[in-house]
Amino acid sequence: MIRSMTGFASGKGAFGPHSWTWELRSVNGKGLDMRLRVPDWLTGLEAALRSQISKALNRGNVTLSLKLSRDETAPDLALNETAMAAALTALARTQEMAAASGVTLAPSTAADLIAIKGMLDAGSEVDDPAPLVEQLTKEFAPLLAAFVDMRQTEGKALADILDGQLTQVSQLTEQAADLAEQRKDKTAEALRENLARVLDNAQGADPDRVAQELALIAVKSDITEEIDRLKAHVVAARDLLSQDAAVGRKLDFLMQEFNREANTLCSKAQSADLTSVGLELKAVIDQMREQVQNVE
């Protein structure tokens, strides 16, 4: 069953002091274009998410947004002892240099030292984001699965619409074939009359040559091949709709072939009724092309 390129999924999660919200959405695209907005400090997360998306999807402009927050109401703070030792050493050396220059410095407090950037670590996740990255990667899988399910549901609805339009094309093709069959006798009579008129009014004209030219005109107005190709295209399109694969590009190419045959049929019509059917065909085919633009 075909899949739509339009989809949306969202989710929430938490791990330790962190909580987050996901938003995954996609629209039409010629290929697979991924735009991910995730925190830079979560090393390796973006690559892991891109890998999952590329395995699950083939086409579409995909946007993923991850909003991450940390609960600071009861922070798990830890002293960075290495940084504190370095700060104390630097402070002692500064006091020595100041005393040697006759400068008296105000005493430093513990609060002054703790306020230095990097002196306190808010939990082990900051030191090592790997556990959080692992959890986020794990929880993204069901979100992506829900997203794919939605695209499949949209694809089923899209397939139903396209199937109905193909039925219209098939019916109009049969109408065109019937009208072409009905005009055969009238066309043959017109050609005979034209041939007699030319021979009566053209001295020295070669009857065989004139007959060949009129026969060529008859061949050029024959739409049998166009009818046969339209019928074949309907069969091919329905076959593509039944496949469990990314067939959007193939369907798009097939729509071009549909349109080409409808244009040729209109140019050969030579009757108001057949022209009307050809224009209806073109309208339905154009509607199909719009729908196919959303097929993965």
Rank of each mutant, 00 (worst) to 15 (best):
L113W: 06
T104V: 12
T224G: 03
G102L: 10
V126H: 00
P142A: 07
R192Y: 04
V169G: 11
P129F: 09
K156F: 08
A106E: 02
E193M: 06
D160E: 07
P131F: 02
A190V: 05
A110E: 08
I114H: 00
F147Y: 13
L195S: 10
T187I: 07
A106W: 00
A110P: 04
A115C: 01
D128L: 01
G204W: 06
P107D: 13
D163A: 08
R197F: 12
R197S: 09
L199W: 02
A180K: 01
S221G: 01
G164E: 10
V235F: 12
E174T: 04
K186I: 05
L143Q: 11
I217A: 03
K138W: 04
D200P: 12
F140H: 07
R192A: 15
M119V: 03
L113R: 06
R183W: 08
P131S: 05
L166F: 09
P207K: 05
T137V: 14
A159F: 06
F147Q: 13
N194R: 06
P107Q: 15
V198L: 13
D127I: 00
D163G: 15
M119A: 09
K231M: 01
A202Q: 12
G123S: 04
S108G: 03
A196T: 13
V169F: 15
E125W: 02
L216H: 05
A111W: 00
Q175A: 13
E181M: 15
D149W: 08
R209I: 07
L166C: 04
L120W: 01
L162H: 10
K156R: 12
